[in-house]
Write a protein that binds this DNA or RNA. Structure first.
Lengths: 355, 355
DNA sequence: ACAGCATAGTAAACCGATTTAGTAGGATAC
DNA sequence: GTATCCTACTAAATCGGTTTACTATGCTGT
């Protein structure tokens, strides 16, 4: 009853999935399903079918608007042309940019993808990869998420730092990123620097902090316990940076520069600084991270360490598809590193002579 | 060769999709596939199978880590539990927020979804819905995109304004939105207002502009041709608003207030104003639209018309699933309207007495 | 005259589930 | 004693394609 009955006469209003199956198309043509399938797919087996017949088949397919059922095809071929993408949350600027790169490459190559966001709930982080595999994805891209254990499809982690078997990590050169930022501030004469670390769950947090400490040591900057804050909370609102900065200000320790974990928190931080009567950049220089789109249009425009997020998404997709289609040829790189770039704008300035 | 051979002994390392099929599970148990299927799915037919046997089956399924192949199930049941989501682009704050609402509800209800972005290319806008239907999606959600023609699955359009058969439109009450903004500015004494319209391809542009004109007439504000600009270009960067505002300033006509199409362009506009020596809000009041996350953290904090984007995504998903699961009961509303809210912050102020 | 080969296909297995229709064997009813 | 019902399942069809193995026919070469 709910199924549209397929009468002998093809209904031209019915398009695609609704009416026309390979079977009905073959019947219409008076040929076998196999013959039609060979021609439609340009399979090598079609070489024994004369051109005339091939054209008849193609014409009929066009006319009846035949579109092969992707489910059936995937089931038989054991190829779904589908990828699973796991992100912490979608609204976040970071993940959205990476996703946009991923999408670009995947769709270009004829793959579709499922997106799931886990909002840092660990049971979802474990469950979603399994659900995705049940849905026959051929590979997984996880963004800023620590994959619990090995999965049995090829996987790529963007900003993954764990050494998980079968997973290729796409990472930023955090050492270089930290050097760029600190050297820039040091060049401007800053010595008393404050820092805002990322949330504990963010996979970049730890690596970046290591890099910052190394860079500070190399450049000869002291990192004071009192002047290091940490973002807390799930959301990616500037509010988090605002709150941490208030705490940093409250501790009483002086600082002339602030290096934040991302641009979003830098925006909140500037707000807090201004509320406390500190001018940016005259009293405090602020360096952000990521270079999100609105960074250039903050007031003052944000000096930041640019992370090639979109490109990282593209690379992730490229590597993954390469691993899927030519597993033998690609000896599966463990890590691919991309380079940051310092974008100097108006939120940093030479330190003013102490009054 | 590429397929993992399924030997008699189950390999405990192989999980999910790899080794265990219903067939192998049934063989392992010495039962028929049907019996196992009944129990796994808690089908009513399982009532004739004794508890003892049911437990054996479930235990074996757990132990071998059996996970039914979703492709096969979908094919047989003609239910894919998959939705297609069509957006202009992913990086945009607007679409990302709506998507986050969509995702929340869909995953909660056990559906997965494919995302495709068309970047306003009309051939993709036509092709993607077909490709999605080929992939057996049970419904479509299109965001800020004009669906070319009727599709044969239930569909919901967020910010759709076309009357397409079979499509439910989720729209903002633009009349109210325009009144809120203009009345607010008028209350502050503004009479000379400038406007930035959306890009021609954005489905809200026209409707909103109508609403603005109506509101202006009602309130008694004159809309000058010279003081209405329009965003141009694909991207959603603040740069677009920056450029339009430069043009508005260049024309020489004076204005004390500016109502922009979205927050992103408001951010660019403020930049341009400031560069031209106009202070915000002292010289020019600016009202944005959407209330994106960083709106509150601009300097000055942005006064804006809040659009409940996330909620609109949730509603879209709800309506769609309701239409899919109970097509008879839901007589398919043509339009659902959500209400805007004016968020007054610091980018608008009472007009200063003319010097 | 007949093997051998190319042409133009077809029949049927298969992917991995769900689902309908049916069956074997024991218990109960009359 | 047997018709009937219940219990505990199973065999086989099905979803819509792809793919392997095979066949029927006609032509060529010797």
């Amino acid at each position: 009853m709910p199924r549209p009955k397929s009468k002998g006469s093809p209904d031209p209003r019915k398009s695609s999935s609704s009416g026309v199956s390979l079977k009905s198309l073959a019947e219409h043509l008076g040929l076998s399903q196999a013959a039609v399938s060979f021609v439609i797919n340009r399979s090598p087996a079609a070489k024994s079918i004369p051109h005339r017949t091939q054209e008849l088949i193609r014409a009929a397919a066009r006319e009846l608007n035949y579109r092969p059922n992707h489910l059936a095809r995937s089931l038989r071929q054991q190829r779904s042309f589908t990828i699973g993408v796991v992100v912490p949350e979608i609204s976040e600027g970071y993940a959205a940019l990476v996703m946009s790169g991923i999408e670009d490459h995947l769709l270009q190559e004829g793959y579709f993808y499922f997106v799931v966001s886990h909002r840092h709930r660990s049971e979802l982080i474990e469950e979603y990869p399994l659900l995705l595999q049940q849905r026959a994805v051929e590979g997984l891209i996880v963004v800023d998420t620590a994959l619990a254990e090995a999965v049995d499809v090829p996987s790529v982690a963007v900003s993954g730092h764990r050494d998980v078997p079968g997973v290729t990590n796409i990472v930023l050169n955090h050492s270089r990123a930290a050097c760029l930022a600190l050297q820039h501030l040091a060049d401007f004469g800053h010595r008393k620097m404050a820092f805002i670390k990322g949330q504990a769950f963010s996979s970049d947090t730890e690596v970046r902090w290591e890099a910052v400490r190394d860079a500070a040591k190399k450049i000869g900057i002291e990192i004071k316990e009192d002047l290091t804050g940490q973002l807390e909370g799930e959301s990616s609102s500037p509010l988090l940076g605002y709150q941490v900065t208030q705490k940093l200000l409250a501790c009483g320790e002086q600082f002339t520069a602030l290096f934040t974990f991302n641009d979003i928190s830098a925006i909140g931080a500037i707000h807090a600084l201004r509320e406390a009567g500190r001018r940016v950049p005259e009293d405090v220089s602020v360096v952000g991270f990521d270079d999100i789109q609105s960074a250039a249009f903050q007031n003052p425009a944000l000096t930041t360490v640019r992370q090639p997020l979109r490109e990282m998404g593209v690379i992730a997709a490229e590597i993954l598809l390469r691993r899927i289609t030519a597993p033998a040829k690609t000896p599966h790189p463990k890590e691919i590193m991309v380079e940051p770039e310092l974008i100097v704008r108006a939120s940093t300035a030479r330190i003013s002579k102490p009054a």
